[in-house]
Amino acid sequence: MTILVLYPMYWVVISSLKTNNEFLSDPLGLPAKLRFENYISAWNQGFSRYFLNSILINIVSVVITVSVGAACAYSLARFDFKGKNIIFFTILAGLLLSPQVAVLPLYKLLIRLKLYNTYWALILPYVGFNLPFSIFLMRSYFISIPREIEESAYIDGCNAFTTFYKIIIPISKPIIASAAIVTSRFFWNEFLFALIFIEDRSKYTVPIGLSHFRNALTTDYTTMLAGITIAALPMIILFLIMQKQFIKGLTAGSVKG
C-alpha cells in the first residue's frame, strides 16, 4: 500500500534526473548520473515565470480573502444589526455554489470590466469563491473567544476597528493560518478559471504553464517530468512544515480541491 502511494512519485522524480535516452530505453532503470540540468532547463523555459505568477496571485488572493473575510466574520460573530441573518445565509449559501456554473458569465463580466487577461481576472473570482468558506471557518472561531477580552479593550478607549485589529487578530492566528493554507491550496490548484481568464503566456499560472509545457516539450520527457516535480514541491513543503494547520483547516471546511 505504501509502495503503491510512493512509487509513482519516486518514479517521476528519479526519471526527471535521467537523460532522455536513458528514460526511453529503460523506463524503470536508475540514471547513470543525476542530471539536475533538467531542472535548470525546465526552470529557464518559462517555469520561473509561471512560478512567480502563481505565487503573486496566491499571496494577493490569500491576503484579501483572509483580511476581508476576517472582518466580515468578526462582524457576524459579534455585532447585532439589521439584516444579519439574511447576510449570513447569503454568505453560507455561497459554499454550495460550484465555480463551473459561473465561469461563462464571469468571463463575459471580466471582459466588460477590462480585467480579462490580468492578474485581477483570477484574484477577484478566487477571492469571491473562497470567502464563504473562510468566513464560515473564522466566524465559528471568533464566537468561541470570550467577550471579556474585547470589553476591557473598549474600556481602554479602543474602537471596533482597533479592537479587531489589535486584540482579535493576534489571538486568532492559528485559525487564520488554517484559512490561509486551505485557500492557498485552492489557488495553487485552480485550473478552469486560469485556463479561460488568462490568455497571455507571460501570465500563466503553474498548472496552466505545466499543461502547455507538454505541448512545447513533447519529446523532451525528462525535462517535462522535472517541471512536474517543481510544480508539486511548494505544497508538499508547506504541508510538511505546517501539517497541523493544514489538517485542521481541511477538516473544519470539509472541502475538496
Binding site: 472582518a71 447569503t90 463580466l109 477571492v127
Partner: peptide
C-alpha cells in the same frame, strides 16, 4: 460596544460585494 450604527456593515461590505459580484451575479 461600538458607537456608530453602520460599523457592522463597514466590516461586512467588502466581503459581501466580492461574493455578490463574482459569485452570485454570474451564477
Amino acid at each position: 460596544m461600538y458607537k456608530k450604527k453602520f460599523t457592522p456593515y463597514l466590516f461586512i461590505i467588502p466581503a459581501l460585494l466580492l461574493i455578490l459580484i463574482f459569485v452570485y451575479i454570474p451564477i
